Amino acid sequence: MRIGLVSDTHNLVRPETLDALRGVDHIIHAGDICKHDVLDALASLAPLTVVRGNNDVAEDVAHLPEHVRIELGGITFHVVHDIADVPRKLDGIDVVVTGHSHKPLIEQRGAVLFVNPGSAGPRRFKLPISLAWLEIDEGRIDARIVQLVT
């Protein structure tokens, strides 16, 4: 199972983002969507799980949940926009997906894999434009950052 992880699109759906996500089995968006049109574009590619970010104040996205727990391919995910809002106890969680910082990160912390796909939206400072892929195969998780724009 391939899962596309995206965050901080800030109302920008790049063609490179759509191309990179074609063929994934599920998409997780870790917040800062800004307008619902972004979700419509992503949902046309695969089932979508999404959380609200600090910039998601528009009426069409303000109702989104702050945290989501979801199981995909036998792996349990906790999705939240800001890593500061990750609960201390992560019992039963295999992967934490965050955004907010715009900095891509893949880091194993004990039994939990932390992934921040970076930002697929407007460039911030000199940070890369990126997303992440997660491959799940028989309980094994392989995470990879995909740089979209150089």
Rank of each mutant, 00 (worst) to 15 (best):
residue 1 M to E: 11
residue 1 M to W: 10
residue 3 I to A: 09
residue 6 V to G: 03
residue 7 S to K: 02
residue 9 T to A: 03
residue 10 H to L: 04
residue 11 N to M: 03
residue 14 R to Y: 11
residue 16 E to R: 04
residue 16 E to I: 04
residue 20 A to M: 09
residue 20 A to N: 08
residue 21 L to V: 01
residue 22 R to W: 07
residue 24 V to F: 15
residue 28 I to A: 01
residue 29 H to L: 02
residue 30 A to W: 01
residue 33 I to P: 00
residue 39 L to W: 02
residue 40 D to F: 11
residue 41 A to M: 10
residue 42 L to P: 02
residue 46 A to D: 15
residue 49 T to W: 14
residue 51 V to K: 11
residue 57 V to F: 11
residue 58 A to P: 05
residue 59 E to Q: 01
residue 60 D to K: 14
residue 62 A to D: 11
residue 63 H to L: 05
residue 64 L to F: 06
residue 65 P to R: 08
residue 66 E to A: 05
residue 66 E to V: 05
residue 67 H to F: 12
residue 72 L to K: 14
residue 73 G to F: 07
residue 75 I to V: 15
residue 75 I to N: 07
residue 77 F to A: 07
residue 78 H to Y: 15
residue 80 V to A: 14
residue 83 I to S: 04
residue 85 D to P: 11
residue 85 D to F: 15
residue 85 D to C: 15
residue 86 V to A: 09
residue 88 R to Y: 06
residue 88 R to W: 08
residue 90 L to Y: 12
residue 91 D to A: 03
residue 93 I to F: 13
residue 94 D to R: 12
residue 97 V to E: 07
residue 101 S to Q: 03
residue 106 I to E: 01
residue 109 R to F: 06
residue 109 R to Y: 04
residue 111 A to F: 10
residue 113 L to E: 05
residue 113 L to R: 05
residue 115 V to N: 00
residue 119 S to R: 06
residue 120 A to I: 08
residue 123 R to V: 15
residue 124 R to P: 01
residue 125 F to S: 05
residue 127 L to P: 03
residue 128 P to Y: 04
residue 137 D to Q: 09
residue 138 E to A: 14
residue 138 E to C: 06
residue 140 R to H: 10
residue 141 I to A: 04
residue 141 I to C: 08
residue 141 I to R: 08
residue 143 A to G: 13
residue 147 Q to W: 13
residue 147 Q to S: 12
residue 148 L to G: 03
residue 149 V to C: 06
residue 149 V to W: 07
